[in-house]
Design a protein around this nucleic acid. Structure first.
Lengths: 120, 120
DNA sequence: CTGTATCCGCTCTGATACTG
DNA sequence: CAGTATCAGAGCGGATACAG
């Protein structure tokens, strides 16, 4: 028998997985790390996130905005000025991304060694 | 002037970013979560990680092995039996992925709400 | 300055078939 | 059972051009 709770759980699971798929990508992580607790303009982000293209930045910012992870604030001036800031959920994700960065630093040596070992 | 330390730092950074790119992908995360502290066979993993194809599983397992995050143990029987386990660095990464899963659960509601708001 | 749209090459992905 | 190879389609990502 499938209870209502089961249904809710599997719905939550599939939603979680979908969010996961959205967010578990290199550019999203780098944008979140770069933003930190600052507020940055589109062009500042483009310059700060090394190697990102105009298109990927727009695309990922829309995705993050759609999921409520960044807030987009438009100043109706000319030329336009648009600023991006992490929301509270965004800051929460940032904490986990920070942890992952720490992990990379911590195990850099092991990973390099493993790679050399793997060439064989 | 570019010191030796600067060079080392930027080398470490680019390596870290490379690792990041390898690992920051949906399938890798799901595999790591699924493995947890268990030891699983190839076919068990394929069944446990919902939706993953034979090919993606192989590809990601190789990548994880190359970076020393999973250990691959071959039992020379017939039919062959190959088991995968997270290494210590792998467990470290798992901790951060766990945190990310917790984050998804915690903010599921906010994210759903944000999405509804975004349709406008 | 910011954002959308288009084109195009290239990689990623899944399905299938084959080997040990 | 585990792994590799191949093929074809989808989607990513970069460059460019143009609009508000």
């Amino acid at each position: 028998m499938v209870t209502k709770q089961d249904a809710d759980l599997s719905r939550a699971d599939s939603l979680a997985r979908e969010i996961f798929s959205d967010v578990a990508n290199k550019w999203a992580f780098l944008i979140i790390e770069t933003l930190g607790d600052r507020t940055l303009r589109f062009s500042e982000l483009r310059d700060a996130v090394e190697g990102i293209s105009h298109k990927m930045l727009t695309q990922n910012l829309r995705m993050l905005e759609r999921n409520g992870l960044v807030e987009r604030e438009v100043h109706p001036t000319v030329p336009p000025r648009v600023e991006y800031t992490l929301t509270e959920p965004g800051q929460g994700l940032r904490a986990t991304v920070d942890a992952m960065c720490g992990w990379t630093q911590r195990f850099l040596g092991d990973i390099e060694a493993a790679r050399r070992r793997f060439e064989a």
